[in-house]
Design a protein around this nucleic acid. Structure first.
Lengths: 140, 140
DNA sequence: ACTTGGCCTAGACAGAGTCTAAGTGTTCGG
DNA sequence: CCGAACACTTAGACTCTGTCTAGGCCAAGT
């Protein structure tokens, strides 16, 4: 079948302390099979395109669970929706505001300086770098 | 930082090709008087706290107009709402995910490398850097 | 078998933001 | 002066993403 990684995904979930279930597996397969960055409603549509397999609530709960457990990362670039990123190694993003397309940037292509001093009583959780681009030949 | 007087704001609006109106002035005064970064609904609440001066639609339209004309900048860090930033010189942000507080970072505190090659057929519009922090002594 | 606990579900709900259609000036030509 | 044109504002309905609730399902242990 076109999903050779099924056992790998189960193992990955176990490594992240996530009990594998049928629904979670369906969602994980989509996230790790599709190359793009998907939003929750896209995942919902894709997982149910053949038959109704997973409910809306479960898709949202599962994506949030995956994000909390570090299996995927939330990318916040669009005020309307969250994207989920299955690449967990550090990297940054291009966001095309015209098309809504999200593209990865390798860290080595764009080094970022050390963290500045954090505000009193806080600890760093992550750093997001987003380069917003628009399609050219587009007179604003 | 000095608080711009009403006439300064009118001039600023004219410089940005925005016709000054009573409602826009109310909104601009809030944006440029309050030090923090405000969300649209906060602006709506503040502008109407004494008496109902500006409608919801106008607040949203005006903030978007200001953002398009470069008078303020949208900051997208929270999937639930957009923040508006009256500082237009380049800088980055801390975002405390626990408190929802947004804080500025001067560019000199955290230099970022040159832009990498942009995707085919796109031109850069801006670069956002967000350091997500959480309050310490906080068991996740 | 019964209970417990985790998972899943449909559908109601919430909140940010948008849209629509009408109303309010304000300007400018006649 | 009058009225037409135009830009701006408005209330409220609407949309859309995401959350919550209350109940159902299923597996494991007693």
């Amino acid at each position: 079948m076109h999903v050779p990684a099924e056992n790998d995904i189960i193992e990955l979930m176990r490594d992240h302390e996530i009990t594998p279930t049928q629904q979670r597996l369906e969602i994980a397969q989509i996230l790790f099979t599709k190359p793009q960055h998907l939003s929750a409603d896209q995942v919902l549509a894709m997982v149910n395109q053949d038959s109704a397999l997973v409910s809306k609530a479960t898709v949202y709960n599962t994506l949030k669970l995956f994000a909390n457990k570090g299996l995927v990362k939330e990318v916040i670039v669009d005020p309307a929706k969250v994207f989920y990123d299955s690449t967990t190694t550090p990297h940054y993003h291009f966001y095309n505001v015209d098309t809504g397309t999200l593209t990865d940037i390798e860290v080595r292509e764009m080094p970022v300086g050390n963290l500045p001093d954090l505000p009193e009583g806080t600890e760093a959780e992550g750093i997001d770098v987003i380069i917003r681009v628009r399609s050219s030949s587009h007179t604003t």
